[in-house]
Deep mutational scan, measured.
Amino acid sequence: RPLSCPNHEGKTMEFYCEACETAMCGECRAGEHREHGTVLLRDV
């Protein structure tokens, strides 16, 4: 079952931030994590 983002209601966490070692949604990735290296969560 997909994980919901606690910061963006209705968004699914699909990415993993390698710098912060945390899962995130597309909005997180485009925002606070935009300078960080990210991979698809399913690839982690």
Results as ranks from 00 to 15, higher is better:
Cys5Gln: 00
Cys17Lys: 02
Glu35Ala: 10
Ala30Leu: 11
Ser4Asp: 13
Lys11Trp: 10
Ser4His: 11
Ala19Met: 11
Glu27Arg: 08
Ser4Ile: 11
Glu18Pro: 12
Arg29Thr: 09
Thr22Arg: 07
Leu41Ala: 08
Gly31Pro: 15
Met24Tyr: 03
Arg42Val: 05
Arg29Trp: 04
Arg29Ala: 14
Ala30Tyr: 05
Val39Ile: 02
Cys28Val: 02
His36Thr: 06
Pro6Ser: 12
Ala19Leu: 08
Lys11Cys: 08
Glu32Pro: 11
Pro2Phe: 14
Gly37Asp: 15
Val39Trp: 06
Leu41Asn: 11
Tyr16Phe: 12
His8Pro: 04
Ala30Arg: 11
Gly10Val: 03
Gly10Pro: 06
Leu40Gly: 09
Glu9Phe: 12
Ala23Gly: 07
Lys11Val: 08
Asn7Val: 13
Arg1His: 00
Val39Thr: 14
His33Met: 01
Asn7Gly: 10
Cys28Gly: 03
Pro6Tyr: 11
Gly31Lys: 11
Glu27His: 07
Ser4Glu: 05
Glu32Asp: 14
Ser4Met: 12
Leu40Val: 07
Pro6Cys: 07
Ala19Gln: 13
Ala30Trp: 06
Ser4Gln: 03
Phe15Trp: 07
Met13Pro: 14
Leu3Phe: 15
Glu35Thr: 12
Met13Phe: 13
Cys28Asp: 04
Glu27Leu: 09
Cys25Gln: 05
Glu14Cys: 08
Pro6Met: 07
Glu18Cys: 05
Leu3Pro: 04
Leu41Ser: 04
Thr38Leu: 03
Arg42Met: 04
Glu18His: 07
Gly37Met: 03
Thr12Cys: 03
Tyr16His: 09
Thr38Glu: 12
His33Ser: 04
Met24Ala: 13
Gly26Glu: 10
Glu27Cys: 04
Arg42Ala: 09
Thr22Phe: 03
Val39Phe: 12
Val39His: 05
Cys20Ala: 01
Cys5Ser: 00
Cys25Met: 01
Glu18Trp: 03
Gly26Val: 11
Thr38Cys: 10
Glu27Thr: 08
Ala23Glu: 15
Cys5Glu: 00
Gly31Phe: 06
Glu32Met: 07
Pro2Glu: 15
Gly31Thr: 11
Pro6Ala: 12
Leu3Ser: 14
Thr22Asn: 13
Pro6Lys: 15
Pro2His: 13
Cys25Trp: 01
Phe15Cys: 04
Cys5Asn: 01
Glu21Arg: 04
Thr22Gln: 07
Arg34Lys: 11
Gly37Phe: 10
Arg1Val: 14
His36Trp: 02
Pro2Thr: 15
Ala19Arg: 12
Leu41His: 06
Met24Arg: 04
Cys25Ser: 02
Met24Thr: 06
Pro6Glu: 13
Pro2Arg: 15
Cys28Ala: 03
Asp43Trp: 00
Ala19Pro: 11
Glu18Asp: 11
Tyr16Met: 09
Leu41Pro: 08
Cys20Asn: 03
Cys5Thr: 00
His8Trp: 02
His33Gln: 06
Ala23His: 14
Pro6Trp: 02
Glu21Ile: 01
Met13His: 06
Arg42Thr: 05
Gly37Ala: 14
Glu9Thr: 13
Cys28Phe: 01
Lys11Ser: 06
Met13Asp: 05
Pro6Arg: 13
His8Ile: 15
Pro2Ile: 15
Cys17Met: 00
Arg1Trp: 00
Glu35Gly: 10
Ala19Thr: 12
Glu14Lys: 04
Met24Asn: 03
Thr38Val: 07
Gly31Val: 08
Glu9Asn: 07
Phe15Pro: 01
Thr22Val: 11
Met13Leu: 06
Thr38Gly: 05
Thr12Asp: 14
Phe15Asp: 07
Ala19His: 06
Leu3Ile: 15
Val39Asn: 15
Arg34Pro: 10
Thr12Ser: 10
His8Arg: 05
Met13Ser: 13
Arg34Ala: 12
Glu18Thr: 12
Arg29Phe: 05
Arg1Glu: 00
Ala30Gly: 11
His8Gln: 06
Gly37Ser: 12
Thr12Gln: 11
Met24Val: 13
Val39Arg: 12
Leu3Gln: 12
Thr22Pro: 01
Leu41Tyr: 09
Arg34Cys: 09
Cys28Glu: 03
Gly31Trp: 03
Glu21Ser: 09
Cys28Met: 01
Glu27Trp: 04
Pro6Gly: 10
Cys20Met: 00
Thr12Lys: 14
His36Lys: 07
Ala30Pro: 04
Gly31His: 00
Thr38Asp: 13
Gly10Gln: 05
Leu41Gln: 13
Val39Tyr: 11
Tyr16Gln: 04
Pro2Gln: 13
Gly10Ser: 09
Glu9Met: 08
Glu14Tyr: 02
Arg34Ser: 13
Leu41Ile: 08
Val39Asp: 15
Thr22Ala: 10
Cys20Leu: 00
Cys25Gly: 02
Lys11Glu: 13
Glu27Ser: 07
Gly26Asp: 14
Gly10Asp: 12
Asp43Ala: 03
Cys5Ile: 00
Thr12His: 02
Glu18Ser: 09
Leu40Phe: 07
Cys17Asn: 02
Val44Ser: 12
Arg34Gly: 14
Asn7Met: 09
Lys11Asn: 14
Pro6Ile: 08
Glu32Asn: 03
Met24Gln: 04
Gly10Asn: 12
His8Ala: 01
Met24Phe: 08
Pro6Thr: 11
Glu35Gln: 07
Thr38Pro: 11
Asn7Lys: 15
Glu14His: 01
Cys17Tyr: 06
Glu32Tyr: 06
His8Gly: 02
Asn7Arg: 14
Phe15Tyr: 08
Thr12Met: 08
Lys11Gln: 06
Glu21Ala: 08
Thr12Ile: 11
Thr12Phe: 11
His33Asn: 03
His36Glu: 05
Pro2Asn: 15
Cys25Thr: 03
Thr12Pro: 15
His33Ala: 05
Lys11Leu: 08
Leu40Trp: 04
Glu9His: 01
His8Lys: 13
Glu27Asn: 10
Asn7Thr: 15
Cys28Thr: 02
Asn7Phe: 15
Gly10Ile: 09
Glu18Tyr: 08
Tyr16Ile: 11
His33Trp: 00
Lys11Gly: 09
Ala19Ser: 11
Asp43Glu: 14
Gly31Ala: 08
Asn7Tyr: 08
Arg29Pro: 06
Arg42Cys: 06
Glu35Pro: 03
